[in-house]
Amino acid sequence: MRSRVWWGTAVALCGLLAAGCGSGDGKSADTSTGSRAPVTVTDCMGAETTFDRVPGRIVTSNASSLELLLRLGAGDKVVGTGFPPGKGTLPAALDAQAQRVAVLGRTVIPKEKLLGSGADLYIDTFASMGNMGGGGMGDAPTAEEFKAAGIKHVFLKSTACAAQNKGPLTDLSAVEEDITALGAVTGTSAKAKELVTGMREKVDGVRKAVGGTAEQARPTYFFFDFDAGTKQPMAVCNRQIAHAVITLAGARNAFADCDGDFKQVSWEDVVSRNPGWIQLGVRNRGSEAANEKAFDEAREWLEGNPATSGLKAVKEGRFLRIASERTTIAGVENAAVVQEIARTIHPGKVK
Protein backbone atom coordinates (compact mmCIF):
# COMPACT_ATOMS: atom_id res chain seq x y z
CA MET A 1 0.00 0.00 0.00
CA ARG A 2 1.31 3.43 -0.83
CA SER A 3 2.52 5.72 1.89
CA ARG A 4 -0.37 7.63 3.40
CA VAL A 5 0.06 11.38 3.47
CA TRP A 6 -2.81 12.10 5.84
CA TRP A 7 -2.92 15.10 6.60
CA GLY A 8 -4.84 17.74 8.43
CA THR A 9 -4.96 21.45 8.93
CA ALA A 10 -4.06 23.56 11.87
CA VAL A 11 -3.16 23.90 15.46
CA ALA A 12 -5.47 25.01 18.22
CA LEU A 13 -8.67 26.29 19.76
CA CYS A 14 -7.53 29.88 19.60
CA GLY A 15 -10.78 31.28 20.92
CA LEU A 16 -10.43 29.40 24.19
CA LEU A 17 -7.03 30.80 24.98
CA ALA A 18 -5.32 34.09 25.70
CA ALA A 19 -5.11 37.36 23.82
CA GLY A 20 -3.81 37.72 20.32
CA CYS A 21 -6.20 35.57 18.34
CA GLY A 22 -7.29 38.53 16.23
CA SER A 23 -9.55 41.46 16.96
CA GLY A 24 -13.29 41.20 17.00
CA ASP A 25 -13.54 42.98 13.67
CA GLY A 26 -11.53 40.20 12.02
CA LYS A 27 -8.49 42.38 11.32
CA SER A 28 -5.11 40.69 11.22
CA ALA A 29 -2.35 41.39 13.71
CA ASP A 30 0.33 43.88 12.70
CA THR A 31 2.81 41.79 10.73
CA SER A 32 4.94 44.61 9.35
CA THR A 33 7.44 44.19 12.18
CA GLY A 34 6.31 40.77 13.35
CA SER A 35 5.21 42.18 16.73
CA ARG A 36 1.76 41.77 18.26
CA ALA A 37 0.02 40.55 21.38
CA PRO A 38 1.01 37.00 22.30
CA VAL A 39 -0.90 34.17 20.64
CA THR A 40 -1.19 30.88 22.53
CA VAL A 41 -2.19 27.61 20.90
CA THR A 42 -2.55 24.11 22.29
CA ASP A 43 -1.93 20.57 21.14
CA CYS A 44 -4.20 17.56 21.61
CA MET A 45 -3.03 17.06 25.18
CA GLY A 46 -3.47 20.70 26.15
CA ALA A 47 0.21 21.69 26.12
CA GLU A 48 0.58 25.34 25.18
CA THR A 49 2.86 27.10 22.70
CA THR A 50 2.99 30.89 22.79
CA PHE A 51 4.02 33.16 19.93
CA ASP A 52 5.17 36.70 20.76
CA ARG A 53 5.97 37.41 17.13
CA VAL A 54 4.64 36.31 13.76
CA PRO A 55 6.83 33.42 12.57
CA GLY A 56 9.00 34.46 9.64
CA ARG A 57 10.38 31.10 8.51
CA ILE A 58 7.92 28.20 8.50
CA VAL A 59 8.47 24.59 7.49
CA THR A 60 5.45 22.38 6.79
CA SER A 61 5.47 18.62 7.12
CA ASN A 62 3.34 18.08 4.02
CA ALA A 63 1.21 19.61 1.30
CA SER A 64 -1.91 19.99 3.45
CA SER A 65 -0.47 22.52 5.87
CA LEU A 66 1.36 24.19 2.99
CA GLU A 67 -1.94 24.64 1.12
CA LEU A 68 -3.57 26.20 4.16
CA LEU A 69 -0.77 28.72 4.56
CA LEU A 70 -1.04 29.60 0.87
CA ARG A 71 -4.80 30.09 1.18
CA LEU A 72 -4.25 32.32 4.21
CA GLY A 73 -1.79 34.47 2.29
CA ALA A 74 1.16 33.39 4.44
CA GLY A 75 2.95 31.45 1.71
CA ASP A 76 5.84 33.93 1.65
CA LYS A 77 6.78 32.74 5.14
CA VAL A 78 7.19 29.07 4.11
CA VAL A 79 10.82 28.11 3.55
CA GLY A 80 10.43 24.37 3.09
CA THR A 81 8.12 21.37 3.11
CA GLY A 82 8.01 17.62 3.20
CA PHE A 83 5.65 15.51 1.08
CA PRO A 84 5.48 18.30 -1.55
CA PRO A 85 2.40 18.66 -3.74
CA GLY A 86 2.81 17.40 -7.28
CA LYS A 87 2.72 19.97 -10.02
CA GLY A 88 -0.86 20.81 -10.90
CA THR A 89 -2.38 19.13 -7.84
CA LEU A 90 -3.28 22.37 -6.07
CA PRO A 91 -5.75 24.95 -7.43
CA ALA A 92 -4.18 27.01 -10.19
CA ALA A 93 -3.85 30.16 -8.09
CA LEU A 94 -1.82 28.30 -5.48
CA ASP A 95 0.13 25.86 -7.60
CA ALA A 96 2.84 28.23 -8.83
CA GLN A 97 3.52 29.41 -5.27
CA ALA A 98 3.68 25.86 -3.99
CA GLN A 99 6.19 24.83 -6.64
CA ARG A 100 8.57 27.56 -5.48
CA VAL A 101 8.77 26.19 -1.93
CA ALA A 102 11.99 24.30 -1.21
CA VAL A 103 11.51 20.55 -0.87
CA LEU A 104 13.26 19.35 2.28
CA GLY A 105 12.03 15.79 1.91
CA ARG A 106 10.01 13.92 -0.69
CA THR A 107 8.41 12.12 2.25
CA VAL A 108 9.18 12.79 5.93
CA ILE A 109 11.79 15.54 6.30
CA PRO A 110 15.07 14.09 7.63
CA LYS A 111 15.72 15.12 11.20
CA GLU A 112 19.03 16.86 10.50
CA LYS A 113 17.62 18.79 7.57
CA LEU A 114 14.62 19.97 9.59
CA LEU A 115 16.74 21.12 12.54
CA GLY A 116 19.15 22.88 10.21
CA SER A 117 16.47 24.56 8.09
CA GLY A 118 16.61 27.88 9.93
CA ALA A 119 12.88 27.66 10.60
CA ASP A 120 11.28 29.28 13.61
CA LEU A 121 8.08 27.21 13.26
CA TYR A 122 7.42 23.63 12.17
CA ILE A 123 3.81 22.64 11.45
CA ASP A 124 3.45 18.90 11.92
CA THR A 125 0.55 16.84 10.59
CA PHE A 126 1.99 13.45 11.49
CA ALA A 127 1.74 13.54 15.25
CA SER A 128 1.39 10.51 17.43
CA MET A 129 -0.09 12.56 20.19
CA GLY A 130 0.50 9.98 22.87
CA ASN A 131 4.19 10.88 22.55
CA MET A 132 4.39 14.62 22.63
CA GLY A 133 8.16 14.67 22.59
CA GLY A 134 8.38 14.23 18.85
CA GLY A 135 6.41 13.76 15.69
CA GLY A 136 4.57 10.64 14.73
CA MET A 137 6.51 9.67 11.61
CA GLY A 138 10.16 8.99 11.01
CA ASP A 139 13.10 9.84 13.27
CA ALA A 140 11.58 13.05 14.59
CA PRO A 141 13.46 15.58 16.71
CA THR A 142 12.76 15.65 20.43
CA ALA A 143 11.22 18.66 22.16
CA GLU A 144 14.67 19.52 23.49
CA GLU A 145 16.20 19.39 20.01
CA PHE A 146 13.49 21.64 18.58
CA LYS A 147 14.08 24.13 21.40
CA ALA A 148 17.84 24.11 20.90
CA ALA A 149 17.33 24.85 17.18
CA GLY A 150 14.95 27.71 17.95
CA ILE A 151 12.01 25.97 16.27
CA LYS A 152 8.53 26.04 17.75
CA HIS A 153 6.76 22.75 17.01
CA VAL A 154 2.98 22.70 16.66
CA PHE A 155 0.68 19.89 15.65
CA LEU A 156 -2.27 20.07 13.27
CA LYS A 157 -5.16 19.12 15.50
CA SER A 158 -7.68 18.24 12.81
CA THR A 159 -5.56 15.24 11.93
CA ALA A 160 -3.17 14.71 14.81
CA CYS A 161 -6.00 14.44 17.32
CA ALA A 162 -8.37 12.39 15.14
CA ALA A 163 -7.74 9.01 16.71
CA GLN A 164 -8.25 10.48 20.18
CA ASN A 165 -11.59 12.16 19.55
CA LYS A 166 -14.11 10.99 22.10
CA GLY A 167 -16.76 10.39 19.48
CA PRO A 168 -17.45 10.47 15.75
CA LEU A 169 -16.69 13.63 13.78
CA THR A 170 -19.99 14.95 12.50
CA ASP A 171 -19.14 18.53 11.53
CA LEU A 172 -16.27 20.72 10.36
CA SER A 173 -15.87 22.76 13.54
CA ALA A 174 -12.40 21.35 14.24
CA VAL A 175 -11.24 22.41 10.79
CA GLU A 176 -12.71 25.88 11.24
CA GLU A 177 -11.01 26.24 14.63
CA ASP A 178 -7.73 25.12 13.11
CA ILE A 179 -7.93 27.68 10.30
CA THR A 180 -8.73 30.40 12.84
CA ALA A 181 -5.77 29.42 15.00
CA LEU A 182 -3.34 29.20 12.10
CA GLY A 183 -4.52 32.62 10.96
CA ALA A 184 -3.83 34.00 14.43
CA VAL A 185 -0.34 32.51 14.52
CA THR A 186 0.60 33.88 11.09
CA GLY A 187 -1.10 37.26 11.43
CA THR A 188 -3.73 36.49 8.80
CA SER A 189 -6.85 36.43 10.97
CA ALA A 190 -8.93 38.44 8.51
CA LYS A 191 -8.34 35.92 5.75
CA ALA A 192 -8.97 33.03 8.14
CA LYS A 193 -12.34 34.56 9.05
CA GLU A 194 -13.18 34.90 5.36
CA LEU A 195 -12.32 31.24 4.68
CA VAL A 196 -14.32 29.98 7.65
CA THR A 197 -17.33 32.11 6.72
CA GLY A 198 -17.29 30.69 3.19
CA MET A 199 -17.16 27.13 4.52
CA ARG A 200 -20.07 27.73 6.87
CA GLU A 201 -22.24 29.22 4.14
CA LYS A 202 -21.79 26.11 2.00
CA VAL A 203 -22.42 23.65 4.81
CA ASP A 204 -25.36 25.57 6.27
CA GLY A 205 -27.06 25.53 2.87
CA VAL A 206 -26.77 21.76 2.70
CA ARG A 207 -27.94 21.37 6.30
CA LYS A 208 -31.09 23.32 5.58
CA ALA A 209 -31.80 21.20 2.51
CA VAL A 210 -31.09 17.69 3.80
CA GLY A 211 -30.44 17.99 7.54
CA GLY A 212 -33.92 16.79 8.40
CA THR A 213 -33.65 13.63 6.30
CA ALA A 214 -34.42 10.57 8.44
CA GLU A 215 -31.47 8.26 9.10
CA GLN A 216 -32.90 5.35 7.14
CA ALA A 217 -33.67 7.64 4.20
CA ARG A 218 -30.00 8.55 3.92
CA PRO A 219 -28.15 6.35 1.42
CA THR A 220 -25.13 4.35 2.53
CA TYR A 221 -21.84 5.61 1.18
CA PHE A 222 -18.44 3.96 0.72
CA PHE A 223 -15.25 5.91 0.19
CA PHE A 224 -13.15 3.69 -2.11
CA ASP A 225 -9.52 4.62 -1.55
CA PHE A 226 -8.29 3.23 -4.87
CA ASP A 227 -4.71 4.39 -4.37
CA ALA A 228 -4.41 2.76 -0.96
CA GLY A 229 -4.59 -0.63 -2.66
CA THR A 230 -7.29 -2.96 -3.91
CA LYS A 231 -6.20 -6.26 -2.38
CA GLN A 232 -7.46 -5.13 1.01
CA PRO A 233 -9.58 -1.96 1.05
CA MET A 234 -8.97 0.92 3.42
CA ALA A 235 -12.14 2.17 5.09
CA VAL A 236 -12.79 5.69 6.34
CA CYS A 237 -13.81 5.44 9.99
CA ASN A 238 -15.88 7.75 12.14
CA ARG A 239 -13.07 9.96 13.45
CA GLN A 240 -11.68 10.89 10.05
CA ILE A 241 -12.76 14.20 8.57
CA ALA A 242 -14.28 12.38 5.58
CA HIS A 243 -16.87 10.88 7.93
CA ALA A 244 -18.01 14.39 8.84
CA VAL A 245 -18.13 15.34 5.15
CA ILE A 246 -20.25 12.28 4.30
CA THR A 247 -22.57 12.82 7.26
CA LEU A 248 -23.10 16.52 6.57
CA ALA A 249 -23.94 15.69 2.95
CA GLY A 250 -26.89 13.58 4.07
CA ALA A 251 -25.37 10.12 3.64
CA ARG A 252 -24.43 7.27 5.99
CA ASN A 253 -20.79 6.23 6.04
CA ALA A 254 -20.77 2.48 5.38
CA PHE A 255 -18.12 2.12 8.09
CA ALA A 256 -19.53 4.55 10.63
CA ASP A 257 -19.20 1.86 13.31
CA CYS A 258 -15.41 1.83 12.94
CA ASP A 259 -13.79 3.89 15.71
CA GLY A 260 -10.65 5.68 14.54
CA ASP A 261 -9.56 7.38 11.34
CA PHE A 262 -8.73 4.63 8.83
CA LYS A 263 -8.90 0.85 9.03
CA GLN A 264 -8.08 -1.97 6.67
CA VAL A 265 -11.16 -4.10 6.07
CA SER A 266 -12.03 -6.93 3.72
CA TRP A 267 -14.07 -6.91 0.55
CA GLU A 268 -16.44 -9.25 2.35
CA ASP A 269 -17.05 -6.42 4.84
CA VAL A 270 -17.82 -4.01 2.00
CA VAL A 271 -20.13 -6.48 0.30
CA SER A 272 -22.02 -7.11 3.54
CA ARG A 273 -22.76 -3.39 3.79
CA ASN A 274 -23.72 -3.10 0.11
CA PRO A 275 -23.37 0.70 -0.22
CA GLY A 276 -25.81 2.67 -2.33
CA TRP A 277 -23.12 5.11 -3.47
CA ILE A 278 -19.37 4.80 -3.94
CA GLN A 279 -16.89 7.63 -4.11
CA LEU A 280 -13.99 6.86 -6.43
CA GLY A 281 -11.35 8.34 -4.18
CA VAL A 282 -8.27 8.72 -6.36
CA ARG A 283 -5.44 11.11 -5.58
CA ASN A 284 -4.85 14.09 -7.80
CA ARG A 285 -2.60 13.19 -10.74
CA GLY A 286 -1.91 16.81 -11.72
CA SER A 287 -4.15 17.18 -14.77
CA GLU A 288 -7.81 16.72 -15.62
CA ALA A 289 -7.04 14.05 -18.23
CA ALA A 290 -4.88 12.05 -15.84
CA ASN A 291 -7.49 12.33 -13.10
CA GLU A 292 -10.29 11.14 -15.38
CA LYS A 293 -8.16 8.18 -16.45
CA ALA A 294 -7.63 7.26 -12.78
CA PHE A 295 -11.35 7.57 -12.02
CA ASP A 296 -12.06 5.31 -15.00
CA GLU A 297 -9.57 2.75 -13.73
CA ALA A 298 -11.14 2.74 -10.27
CA ARG A 299 -14.61 2.25 -11.69
CA GLU A 300 -13.46 -0.49 -14.07
CA TRP A 301 -11.79 -2.30 -11.20
CA LEU A 302 -15.01 -2.34 -9.19
CA GLU A 303 -17.04 -3.46 -12.19
CA GLY A 304 -14.59 -6.19 -13.13
CA ASN A 305 -13.91 -7.58 -9.67
CA PRO A 306 -16.23 -10.50 -8.88
CA ALA A 307 -16.34 -9.49 -5.22
CA THR A 308 -17.69 -5.99 -5.97
CA SER A 309 -19.48 -6.24 -9.31
CA GLY A 310 -22.73 -7.16 -7.57
CA LEU A 311 -22.77 -4.22 -5.20
CA LYS A 312 -25.87 -2.04 -5.50
CA ALA A 313 -23.84 1.08 -6.29
CA VAL A 314 -21.81 -0.73 -8.95
CA LYS A 315 -24.83 -2.29 -10.68
CA GLU A 316 -26.64 1.04 -10.75
CA GLY A 317 -23.56 3.08 -11.70
CA ARG A 318 -23.79 5.30 -8.65
CA PHE A 319 -20.25 6.66 -8.50
CA LEU A 320 -18.88 10.03 -7.45
CA ARG A 321 -15.63 11.29 -8.96
CA ILE A 322 -14.15 13.37 -6.15
CA ALA A 323 -10.44 13.43 -5.38
CA SER A 324 -9.28 11.86 -2.14
CA GLU A 325 -7.42 14.91 -0.89
CA ARG A 326 -10.49 17.16 -0.96
CA THR A 327 -12.38 14.68 1.20
CA THR A 328 -9.84 13.21 3.62
CA ILE A 329 -7.54 16.19 4.19
CA ALA A 330 -9.03 18.59 6.70
CA GLY A 331 -9.25 21.93 4.94
CA VAL A 332 -11.25 24.51 3.07
CA GLU A 333 -12.26 22.10 0.31
CA ASN A 334 -14.20 19.87 2.72
CA ALA A 335 -17.18 22.23 2.61
CA ALA A 336 -17.28 22.21 -1.19
CA VAL A 337 -17.24 18.40 -1.17
CA VAL A 338 -20.20 18.38 1.23
CA GLN A 339 -22.09 20.34 -1.43
CA GLU A 340 -20.99 18.08 -4.29
CA ILE A 341 -21.98 14.88 -2.53
CA ALA A 342 -25.33 16.30 -1.39
CA ARG A 343 -26.20 17.53 -4.90
CA THR A 344 -25.51 14.05 -6.27
CA ILE A 345 -27.24 11.85 -3.72
CA HIS A 346 -30.15 14.24 -3.02
CA PRO A 347 -30.91 15.63 -6.47
CA GLY A 348 -33.33 18.54 -6.49
CA LYS A 349 -32.87 19.34 -2.79
CA VAL A 350 -29.49 21.07 -2.87
CA LYS A 351 -28.84 24.05 -5.09
Rank of each mutant, 00 (worst) to 15 (best):
V103M: 11
M199H: 05
L320F: 06
L115T: 10
V39Y: 11
H153S: 03
A335Q: 03
E288S: 05
L280F: 11
K113W: 05
A307K: 05
F222N: 03
L320N: 04
D178W: 00
S173A: 08
K157G: 02
A294P: 00
A335W: 02
A336R: 14
I322A: 04
D171G: 04
K293Y: 00
N334A: 06
A342G: 04
A63P: 02
A140I: 05
S61G: 08
T247Y: 10
P347I: 09
S128R: 14
A298P: 00
G211Y: 01
M129E: 08
R318A: 06
G130V: 04
R207Q: 10
G8R: 09
Y122V: 07
Q240T: 02
A214N: 08
Y221H: 05
P141T: 11
F222M: 04
V206H: 05
A290H: 03
G211K: 01
G88K: 04
R53M: 08
A298N: 01
P141I: 14
V314W: 00
T142S: 08
F319M: 14
D259G: 04
A330L: 12
G150W: 10
G211M: 06
V103S: 07
E325R: 01
R318T: 07
V314R: 02
S309R: 15
C21W: 13
I341K: 04
F223I: 11
R318Y: 05
T49V: 14
V103E: 05
H346Q: 06
F83L: 12
T327Y: 00
T247I: 03
F262Y: 09
I151G: 09
N165D: 03
A96R: 14
M137D: 04
T89D: 07
